[in-house]
Protein backbone atom coordinates (compact mmCIF):
# COMPACT_ATOMS: atom_id res chain seq x y z
CA UNK A 1 0.00 0.00 0.00
CA UNK A 2 1.14 3.53 -0.74
CA UNK A 3 2.33 5.53 2.24
CA UNK A 4 -0.06 8.23 3.26
CA UNK A 5 -0.22 11.28 5.44
CA UNK A 6 -1.54 11.29 8.98
CA UNK A 7 -5.28 11.99 9.31
CA UNK A 8 -4.96 15.40 10.95
CA UNK A 9 -4.13 17.09 7.64
CA UNK A 10 -7.59 16.30 6.34
CA UNK A 11 -9.70 19.43 5.97
CA UNK A 12 -12.04 19.76 8.94
CA UNK A 13 -9.75 17.97 11.39
CA UNK A 14 -10.07 19.40 14.88
CA UNK A 15 -6.83 20.67 16.35
CA UNK A 16 -6.39 21.59 20.00
CA UNK A 17 -4.12 24.55 20.74
CA UNK A 18 -2.03 24.72 23.91
CA UNK A 19 -4.60 26.96 25.61
CA UNK A 20 -7.32 24.39 24.95
CA UNK A 21 -8.96 26.24 22.06
CA UNK A 22 -10.18 24.03 19.21
CA UNK A 23 -9.66 25.04 15.59
CA UNK A 24 -10.00 23.35 12.24
CA UNK A 25 -6.70 22.56 10.57
CA UNK A 26 -7.52 24.89 7.65
CA UNK A 27 -8.16 27.79 10.06
CA UNK A 28 -4.81 27.68 11.83
CA UNK A 29 -2.71 30.82 11.72
CA UNK A 30 0.95 31.56 12.38
CA UNK A 31 0.03 33.14 15.74
CA UNK A 32 -1.68 29.92 16.87
CA UNK A 33 1.57 28.00 16.60
CA UNK A 34 3.66 30.76 18.18
CA UNK A 35 1.29 31.22 21.12
CA UNK A 36 0.94 27.49 21.66
CA UNK A 37 4.70 27.06 21.77
CA UNK A 38 5.00 29.92 24.28
CA UNK A 39 2.45 28.27 26.55
CA UNK A 40 3.85 24.77 26.20
CA UNK A 41 7.10 25.42 28.01
CA UNK A 42 8.80 22.42 26.39
CA UNK A 43 8.60 23.28 22.72
CA UNK A 44 10.23 26.06 20.80
CA UNK A 45 9.26 27.32 17.35
CA UNK A 46 12.13 27.48 14.90
CA UNK A 47 12.28 29.15 11.53
CA UNK A 48 13.30 26.62 8.92
CA UNK A 49 14.16 28.07 5.53
CA UNK A 50 13.76 25.86 2.46
CA UNK A 51 17.16 25.75 0.77
CA UNK A 52 16.63 22.98 -1.80
CA UNK A 53 13.89 20.74 -3.07
CA UNK A 54 15.05 17.64 -4.93
CA UNK A 55 13.35 14.61 -6.35
CA UNK A 56 13.55 11.36 -4.45
CA UNK A 57 13.85 7.77 -5.69
CA UNK A 58 10.82 6.92 -3.57
CA UNK A 59 7.50 7.33 -5.36
CA UNK A 60 5.67 10.63 -4.86
CA UNK A 61 8.44 11.84 -2.59
CA UNK A 62 10.81 14.76 -2.40
CA UNK A 63 13.88 15.60 -0.37
CA UNK A 64 13.71 19.02 1.22
CA UNK A 65 16.78 20.65 2.68
CA UNK A 66 16.15 23.17 5.44
CA UNK A 67 18.37 25.65 7.24
CA UNK A 68 17.01 25.34 10.78
CA UNK A 69 17.05 27.97 13.50
CA UNK A 70 19.37 30.87 14.13
CA UNK A 71 22.42 28.68 13.48
CA UNK A 72 20.98 27.60 10.13
CA UNK A 73 21.74 23.95 10.77
CA UNK A 74 21.29 21.91 7.60
CA UNK A 75 18.58 19.26 7.91
CA UNK A 76 17.26 17.13 5.06
CA UNK A 77 13.93 15.38 5.23
CA UNK A 78 12.29 13.04 2.76
CA UNK A 79 8.56 13.62 2.57
CA UNK A 80 5.62 12.77 0.38
CA UNK A 81 5.08 15.56 -2.14
CA UNK A 82 1.65 16.23 -0.65
CA UNK A 83 3.02 16.73 2.89
CA UNK A 84 2.04 20.23 4.02
CA UNK A 85 4.35 22.55 5.90
CA UNK A 86 3.15 25.73 7.56
CA UNK A 87 4.92 28.74 6.08
CA UNK A 88 5.17 31.85 8.28
CA UNK A 89 2.58 34.40 7.29
CA UNK A 90 1.36 32.27 4.40
CA UNK A 91 -0.09 29.04 5.73
CA UNK A 92 -0.09 25.47 4.45
CA UNK A 93 2.27 24.80 1.57
CA UNK A 94 3.46 21.60 -0.08
CA UNK A 95 5.68 20.50 -2.94
CA UNK A 96 2.57 19.47 -4.86
CA UNK A 97 -0.37 21.57 -3.67
CA UNK A 98 -2.70 20.07 -6.28
CA UNK A 99 -2.16 16.64 -4.79
CA UNK A 100 -2.60 17.90 -1.21
CA UNK A 101 -5.88 19.52 -2.18
CA UNK A 102 -7.00 16.42 -4.05
CA UNK A 103 -6.18 14.03 -1.21
CA UNK A 104 -7.02 16.15 1.82
CA UNK A 105 -9.15 19.02 0.52
CA UNK A 106 -6.65 21.25 2.32
CA UNK A 107 -5.94 24.47 0.45
CA UNK A 108 -2.23 24.72 -0.09
CA UNK A 109 0.33 27.01 -1.69
CA UNK A 110 3.37 25.76 -3.57
CA UNK A 111 6.35 25.26 -1.28
CA UNK A 112 9.36 27.05 -2.78
CA UNK A 113 13.01 27.67 -2.06
CA UNK A 114 13.25 30.61 0.36
CA UNK A 115 9.99 29.84 2.16
CA UNK A 116 10.31 29.94 5.94
CA UNK A 117 8.48 27.05 7.59
CA UNK A 118 7.45 26.59 11.18
CA UNK A 119 9.27 23.74 12.85
CA UNK A 120 9.71 22.65 16.43
CA UNK A 121 12.60 21.83 18.67
CA UNK A 122 12.72 20.96 22.32
CA UNK A 123 13.77 23.70 24.71
CA UNK A 124 16.77 23.23 26.94
CA UNK A 125 18.11 20.16 25.22
CA UNK A 126 21.59 20.74 26.50
Amino acid sequence: PAPSLPPYFMKGSIIQLADGELKRVEDLRTEDFIQSAEISGELKIDSSTVERIDGSPAPNSAIIQFAVGEHRVQVSVEVLVEYPFFVFGQGWSSCCPDRTTQLFELSCAKLSVGDVCISLTLKNLK
Binding site: P6, P7, Y8, F9, S13, I14, I15, Q16, L17, A18, L22, V25, L28, D32, F33, S36, S40, L43, I45, D46, S48, F66, V68, G69, H71, V73, V75, V77, F85, F86, C117, I118, S119, L120, T121, L122, L125, K126
Partner: peptide, 19 residues
Protein backbone atom coordinates in the same frame (compact mmCIF):
# COMPACT_ATOMS: atom_id res chain seq x y z
CA UNK B 1 -14.60 13.21 16.63
CA UNK B 2 -10.84 12.87 17.20
CA UNK B 3 -8.97 15.90 18.46
CA UNK B 4 -5.32 16.25 17.57
CA UNK B 5 -2.71 18.30 19.47
CA UNK B 6 -1.35 21.31 17.61
CA UNK B 7 2.24 20.07 17.75
CA UNK B 8 1.38 17.00 15.68
CA UNK B 9 1.16 19.26 12.65
CA UNK B 10 4.60 20.76 12.88
CA UNK B 11 7.73 18.79 12.03
CA UNK B 12 10.51 18.39 14.54
CA UNK B 13 13.56 19.57 12.66
CA UNK B 14 15.82 19.39 15.66
CA UNK B 15 19.45 19.86 14.83
CA UNK B 16 21.13 16.70 15.99
CA UNK B 17 22.13 17.15 19.61
CA UNK B 18 24.61 14.32 19.55
CA UNK B 19 27.35 16.25 21.30
Amino acid sequence: VPVFPWHSLVPFLAPTQSD
